[in-house]
Simulated scan of single mutants.
Amino acid sequence: MDWIEVRIHTSREAEEATANFLLEMGAEGTSTADPEVLTRTWKQRYGEIVDLDPADYPEEGIWVTGYFSEAKFSEELIHRLQEKVEGLADFGLDPGPASILHRTVSEESWASAWKAYYKPTKVTSRLTVKPVWEDYEAKSKDEQIIQLDPGMAFGTGTHPTTVLSLRLLEKYLNTGDRVIDVGCGSGILSAAAAKLGAGRVLALDLDPVAVENAKKNIGYNQVEDRVQVRQGDLLKGVTGTANVVVANILAEIILLFTADVPRVLETGGTFLASGIISQKEAEVVDGMNRAGLEVVERIHDGDWVALAARKW
């Protein structure tokens, strides 16, 4: 079967939102080509990026590519994607050129091409993200390996918002903690929480495709005994409590449920929020303050911000 490859030229800060648009509209998978990898200085070499061709990357910005079955593709889909990407400016995200190209590719080409860009990556002092098809062994007894197949959900562990989330999880999660992962995507944060010692993790996502893919990734990491993945709309219907609530989603979505966080967060617990563009930081901090949460740490990566807030 042939597939339709739809490539969107956008900005780094719009990567996850653009990938989400593609998935919402029926893409069976996404990949990102970021020219930053061509000039990156790698502190450790795992054979992860070699012989990269500059022709496979844009000169500026990034390419986010989605793959659609012929049955799901239409010219109307391209028009709708164009409107959605250009509309990111209304949410404080730079849409970049927002240009869209498409072409027909064979199933074999689609199945293997995007994997060339995804290799084992050490994302924090203790966490390394490894695609399930790559061989990699831990370099020390403290290193935890998260096995991941992004499949039809995004969140490979290399995007700044995900790395910031993992850094905060590593710092604030204590052994035995109960965790709620809101908008779990590929399940990477839930798997990481379990690997870092969480006693129980509830992973929630509104997208049923993300839920199924997260379940697979939890299985790859052999932490099914501690991680429950289910479909859910933010914190609606959640009756249990947690020591840590983590969310790596857009600021606008974080603000939709921040007031509900104290209901499920234990006293002394921590709310970790990432996916916040710097222009929205003050707005999210204000929302946390109004909910009775105190911001105790802010970390940055470029234009992205992640916050740790406590319930006292």
Rank of each mutant, 00 (worst) to 15 (best):
A153Y: 00
L206W: 09
V227R: 03
I253G: 02
K122I: 11
N20P: 08
D205G: 09
S106A: 10
V50T: 15
I78E: 04
K171R: 15
R263G: 10
A291F: 11
S165K: 03
A193W: 03
I8P: 01
V264M: 05
H102L: 11
R200V: 13
A203R: 05
L204V: 00
S69L: 06
E28P: 11
Q82V: 10
V6E: 00
V85M: 11
P54Y: 11
V179W: 03
T104Y: 07
G287L: 05
T121V: 12
A113N: 11
I146P: 04
L189N: 01
Y46E: 08
F21M: 08
A138G: 10
K171G: 10
H102V: 07
D2S: 14
F68K: 00
H9E: 11
E75Y: 12
S186G: 06
V182L: 05
T41P: 11
A214D: 06
K311F: 13
P97M: 08
A191M: 10
A153Q: 01
G96E: 05
G157Y: 03
G185S: 03
K171V: 10
Y118W: 13
L235E: 07
R178Y: 13
E297Y: 02
N248C: 04
E16C: 09
E281V: 06
F68L: 03
K84L: 13
D286A: 15
G197D: 11
A89P: 10
T10H: 05
T175H: 14
F21T: 06
V211R: 01
A33N: 12
L196F: 09
E266T: 12
D177F: 06
L189F: 03
L202G: 02
L293V: 09
A273H: 02
E24S: 12
N20A: 14
G155S: 09
T65K: 03
W133D: 08
L168I: 08
A282S: 15
N243H: 14
Y172N: 11
E294H: 08
W304S: 05
R226V: 15
E28H: 08
S106C: 05
R310S: 13
E281N: 07
Q147P: 01
E70M: 13
V209C: 14
I145T: 09
G185V: 02
Y136Q: 09
E283F: 09
L250Y: 09
P120L: 05
Y117F: 15
R12G: 10
I276F: 07
E83T: 12
M25D: 14
T267H: 13
Y57N: 04
G87K: 14
V209Y: 09
Q279F: 11
D301T: 12
L22Y: 05
Y117P: 04
V295A: 06
S109P: 04
N221D: 04
L256W: 07
I254M: 13
N289A: 14
T158P: 06
G151W: 07
Q147Y: 15
T156C: 04
G199E: 05
E28Q: 15
L77C: 06
A113Y: 11
I249Y: 00
I254L: 14
Y57G: 07
E212L: 09
A138N: 10
